[in-house]
Amino acid sequence: MRTESRSGSRHLLAAALADVRRCAAGTSDALLHHVPDTGDHVTGRIVDDFVDQASDALRALAESVADALASLESPESLESLESLDPGAGPGRGRRDGR
């Protein structure tokens, strides 16, 4: 019961982290497809620099969230849960969550 509730919280957190990662990675790619014409060379370069930097920052966020997700689903973490209640691991929670 205890482990199951804790496991449910982990799945909720994993889903939220996965959503942040997906959103960051998708936005990072999508921004690079824009071709804004500001009518001025200097302004255009500044817009391009901003878009490149925003895209890079979004990639950094996606990478960092991927690390957090990996530690959430690490074998040590799963073993610890399984040893307390073999039926309450994340695999079961994932199926139950459908």
Partner: peptide
């Protein structure tokens, strides 16, 4: 959604605290 998930995890953690359970990883 991430903040909601974290507070749900914290509530579960404080109710069901056990030294045998690993901490929920969080975004730094």
């Amino acid at each position: 959604a991430l903040a909601d998930a974290r507070s749900a995890g914290s509530r579960a953690g404080s109710r069901l605290a056990s030294p045998d359970l690993p901490d929920l990883p969080d975004l730094p």
